[in-house]
Computed example of a mutant assay.
Amino acid sequence: MKQKIIMILLLLGSAMGGAAQNALPDTLLFVFKLHGQTRKYEMTFTPQHDAFVLNWRILRNLKWQKGSYTLTPQAVKKGSVLSFLMPEDGRHVTLSEQETAYILSQEAYRNLKARQRFAYNHTEYELMDSDEHAAGFALLHVRDTLEGSEMWILDNPSLPLVWSMQNNPLEINWRVEINK
Rank of each mutant, 00 (worst) to 15 (best):
I58K: 02
N121A: 01
F32N: 05
T72W: 01
D26Y: 13
T70I: 06
I172M: 10
W64G: 08
D155K: 07
S105E: 02
H35S: 15
L154K: 10
E107Q: 12
H35P: 12
E150K: 02
E177K: 12
A19Q: 12
A75V: 04
T38F: 11
Q48A: 10
V162I: 15
D155I: 11
E99C: 02
L104N: 00
L104Y: 01
E99N: 01
R60P: 04
W163P: 09
Q37V: 12
A19H: 15
L127V: 04
L54H: 04
L140N: 09
M165Y: 02
W163L: 07
A75Y: 00
N168F: 00
Q74S: 03
L159A: 05
L85T: 15
L29N: 08
K77C: 00
I58L: 02
L170W: 09
K66W: 15
L140W: 12
W174F: 10
Y69K: 01
K40F: 11
K77S: 01
P87T: 07
D144T: 02
H122S: 01
F45D: 03
W56G: 04
G136V: 00
L34M: 13
D131F: 07
T123E: 00
D129V: 04
H49E: 05
E124V: 15
Q3P: 02
E88P: 07
L95I: 07
Q3A: 07
S164I: 09
K78A: 05
P160N: 09
V176C: 01
Q98F: 13
H133P: 02
G13T: 15
L10H: 12
A15Q: 14
K77D: 00
Q106N: 03
A119T: 11
I58F: 03
D26P: 11
R39W: 15
L85M: 15
R115E: 06
G79E: 00
G36E: 05
W163G: 05
P157W: 09
R143N: 06
G79Y: 00
D26T: 14
V162P: 01
V142T: 12
I6G: 05
P47D: 02
N55T: 09
S130I: 11
D89R: 08
A135V: 10
L127W: 07
Y120P: 03
I103H: 01
L71C: 05
K113F: 00
Q98V: 14
E126W: 08
A19T: 14
N111A: 09
R143H: 07
L95Q: 03
F118Y: 15
Q48C: 03
T72F: 00
K180L: 13
E97S: 05
L170K: 11
M165H: 04
M151S: 06
L59H: 05
P47N: 06
V162Q: 01
I172H: 08
H141N: 13
L139K: 03
P169L: 01
L140C: 12
S96D: 08
N167Y: 01
N167W: 03
T100N: 00
G18Q: 15
D129E: 08
E97M: 03
F137H: 10
D155R: 06
E99H: 00
D131H: 11
D89E: 05
G67A: 14
F45K: 07
W152L: 11
